[in-house]
């Protein structure tokens, strides 16, 4: 796993109060590095003026169970 990915992962795990399995660092290293690179591609994509669409309908209220 690349150093910056590992450092980010350990910091995030600490913040979440989760202990990493040390053997997972090696096991998932390539996958997590690939994901980090894919995130760079994600952010490089020009989305123009696109917004996030509404993910809820405020006129809806949940019925009482």
């Amino acid at each position: 796993m690349e150093k910056r990915t590992e450092e980010a992962l350990r910091a995030l795990l600490a913040r979440a109060g989760i202990e990493v399995r040390e053997d997972d660092i090696e096991r998932f290293g390539k996958l997590l590095d690939t994901y980090t690179k894919a995130l760079e591609l994600l952010h490089s994509y020009d989305v123009g003026a696109a917004e996030i669409g509404p993910t809820f309908q405020p006129q809806r209220t949940l019925p009482e169970d």
Binding site: A16, L32, H43, V47, G48, I52
Partner: peptide, 26 residues
Amino acid sequence: RARIYLGLLTNSSDYIQAQRIRTRLR
């Protein structure tokens, strides 16, 4: 387990960019 690590490595700006890509795709 891998999916948990992948979720943890994803931050809000990643999620928002993905949702904006979603809008463009639609």
